[in-house]
């Protein structure tokens, strides 16, 4: 059984720039795919090709079984798309704008769907104000409302929380989580905490190529901070030295306020060894923090070399 969105050997060339370079992946129902990568990695271009806005140089995209190139209307009907920056017609009000989209999308229960998206995204207060007078947060929500008006099976969102305040970010994430059960969702983002919060899978692209394709947990395990131990206390020189001499410690990093972080050699755990050292120095009460790994560190390590 193939996924709802199938991307095969996608290539997009602008002049001599390979914006997308032989990209392949599949996303199925119930998955939330985080599309990560530095600026210019080809995330937006890939999304524009999946949604049928841009033709690929070569390769194939299938959405809900419809090849985007040969059956663009059928493919577009079953997907919802939030373009980067959530563009809308600035002179229209959200109400007029959503009605225009409904005129074209023709959802089954038109009135019900309109009420639902307006309610879910809290658009009532601004429903009859022109879009260009709205705050960035509201504009983004209008864009989101537009993308899910027809209850699409596939949702593609280019940086859905960009420019929102922390509360709005959280709202949008909760909303995506709620929708995720029976849909295929692809989001692009720069915000790594977002990947942990909503994605079931992450693809990191750089220079148009897939670098990794795995779950956020697996991704985190690649971090050198995975299983690192942070000792949050003021330590004497002798304790520091003893900790630093532990066999499995690769690097010792001082923490900003006090204490230090011990990074293990690959595949090793440090917790017990550290506890032993602390016990020997009568520091039983000192809190230890075992790190799960840092995504930003993984992201940096993976994408850094490509750009050098």
């Amino acid at each position: 059984m193939s996924g709802s969105v199938v991307v095969e050997n996608l290539v997009k060339v602008y002049g001599d720039l390979h914006a997308v370079d032989d990209l392949s992946f599949e996303v199925g129902s119930g998955e939330v795919l985080g599309f990560l990568g530095p600026n210019g990695a080809g995330k937006s271009t890939t999304m524009k090709i999946i949604t049928g806005f841009l033709p690929p140089t070569s390769g194939r995209v299938t959405v809900c079984g419809h090849p985007v190139e040969t059956q663009p209307e059928a493919a577009k009907r079953c997907l919802g798309y939030l373009p980067e920056g959530a563009p809308a017609y600035s002179e229209m009000t959200p109400w007029q704008f959503l009605n225009f989209v409904a005129d074209i999308r023709r959802p089954k229960d038109r009135r019900g769907r309109l009420d639902w998206v307006i309610g879910q995204l809290g658009l009532e207060p601004v429903l009859h104000r022109p879009v260009d007078t709205l705050s960035k947060g509201y504009r983004r929500r209008v864009g989101l409302a537009q993308s899910m008006l027809h209850d699409p099976r596939v949702l593609i969102m280019d940086e859905p929380t960009d420019g929102l305040d922390p509360n709005q970010k959280r709202q949008v994430r909760d909303f995506i989580n709620e929708m995720a059960k029976d849909k295929t969702i692809i989001i692009s983002t720069h915000i790594l905490e977002e990947v942990e919060a909503i994605c079931t899978r992450a693809i990191i692209v750089s220079a148009g190529k897939v670098l990794v394709d795995e779950t956020p947990e697996e991704l985190r395990r690649r971090s050198r901070y995975c299983n690192a131990v942070t000792v949050q206390a003021e330590l004497t020189e002798s304790v520091r030295a003893a900790l630093g001499e532990l066999e499995d410690v690769a690097v010792v990093e001082p923490e900003r306020n006090q204490g230090l972080t011990l990074i293990p050699r690959p595949g090793c755990t440090l917790e017990n060894a550290v506890r032993d050292v602390l016990l020997r120095h009568n520091l039983k009460e000192v809190p230890l923090h075992i790190q799960a790994g840092r995504l930003d560190d993984v992201f940096h390590t993976l994408t850094h070399n490509v750009h050098e």
Binding site: F53, P83, G85, S90, V101
Partner: peptide, 14 residues
């Protein structure tokens, strides 16, 4: 200029 063309052309219109 505003990017709304991306919205329009990804709706199921020809």
């Amino acid at each position: 200029k505003t990017g709304s063309i991306e919205l329009l052309m990804t709706l199921p219109v020809t």
